[in-house]
Simulated scan of single mutants.
Amino acid sequence: MDPFSRTSAGVSKAGKSATGKGAGGSETADGGKTQRGIQSVEVGGRVLLALAQARTPLALSDLAGAAQIAPGQAHAYLVSLSRLGLIKRDELSGRYEPGPLSLRLGLLHLENQPAFRAAVPRVAALAEAIGFSVAICIAGPQGPTIVRYEHAGFPLHVNLHVGTVMSLPATSTGRVFCAYSRREVLDAMWANQSGAIGSAMTPADQSAAFEATLDAIRAHGLERSVDVPSPGISSLSAAVLDAAGRLALALTVIGSTGAIDVAADGPIARALLATARDIGAELAIAPSLLASSAS
């Protein structure tokens, strides 16, 4: 059971209000004693969980309903959560979305992931070696999301930064994720991007030509885009696979069309694939080291 999906039994017994300071322990079914908690913090956690599960900004009434609290009570929590930076309110739409502190916590969690740790120094070296910017992308709720962006060369006339979500069908990064993502992950990303553009998009509806493209990506581990979706910008994207052959993340090299060589057998493609293989090799070594140390 999710820790935010229940109310503290100790608070109820003690008669504390939703904003009470704490709760005494209570007996569990096996005779043990639950740890003391603070109900108001748990309710605030329910608000954050509701926002995370929605995967889109929410109006106050929708957020309150998802968190199973009254709108007036939700507003008080949103004021405090906004002051902390865990939530922010869009001034135009009035909807609530994750705040800067949530992003920092998410990035801290990401930095402890083996694939990200292995990728960061290699991507920095790759960007310096080839002279083009390189993005590290992982699967986010809305789609492939940039979680690190190493700038190199001349500035690009395109708004790419940490947090940018890539289109699944229209970008080289998105098509790499289409080729390698688990079906449930891919279905969720397609559904969310469909809502964003206001039309239905599901992997099952894709044409035979698109499926052939995905087969080619799996065969070569690489995809490219030229002048799409941004005119004058081209890219190469490569998959990084873990020890089980699953997609851990994608690396995408971005540059001005005409300046960047996006040939599948060109020097940039070879350097990108070599970097992706090096990261994957480190991920394959880590489980074997853990197994040997355990024995």
Results as ranks from 00 to 15, higher is better:
M1W: 09
G10N: 07
G15K: 05
K16H: 13
K16V: 15
A18D: 14
G20V: 09
G20R: 05
K21E: 14
A23T: 13
G25K: 13
S26E: 15
E27K: 15
A29R: 14
T34Y: 07
V41E: 12
G44V: 05
G45A: 03
R46L: 00
A52R: 04
L58S: 05
L60F: 03
L60C: 01
S61H: 12
A64G: 04
Q68T: 07
I69T: 02
I69C: 04
I69D: 00
A70K: 13
P71V: 05
G72E: 11
G72R: 11
H75P: 02
H75M: 12
S80D: 14
L81D: 01
S82G: 09
L84A: 09
L86V: 01
R89K: 15
Y96C: 02
P98K: 04
P98I: 02
P100K: 02
R104Q: 12
L105I: 11
E111G: 08
Q113A: 13
A115V: 03
V120I: 11
V123K: 03
A125Q: 14
G131R: 03
A135V: 11
H151D: 07
G153S: 05
F154C: 02
F154T: 14
V158I: 07
M166P: 04
T173V: 15
V176Q: 06
V176M: 02
C178T: 01
C178K: 05
A179T: 03
Y180C: 06
E184S: 14
E184L: 09
L186W: 04
D187I: 03
M189Q: 08
S194A: 14
I197K: 09
S199P: 01
M201T: 06
M201Y: 06
P203N: 08
A204Y: 05
D205H: 10
A209K: 10
A209P: 02
F210H: 13
E211M: 08
T213V: 09
L214R: 00
I217V: 15
I217A: 08
A219S: 14
S225I: 07
V226H: 11
S235C: 13
L236G: 11
L236M: 12
L236H: 13
S237W: 00
A239K: 11
L241Y: 12
L241K: 13
R246P: 03
L247V: 06
L247Y: 07
L249R: 08
V253P: 10
S256D: 02
T257H: 01
G258W: 01
G258C: 06
I260C: 00
I260E: 00
D261T: 06
D265F: 11
I268S: 09
A271G: 11
L273G: 12
T275N: 13
I279W: 08
A284T: 10
A286W: 04
P287W: 08
L289I: 08
L290I: 02
A291S: 11
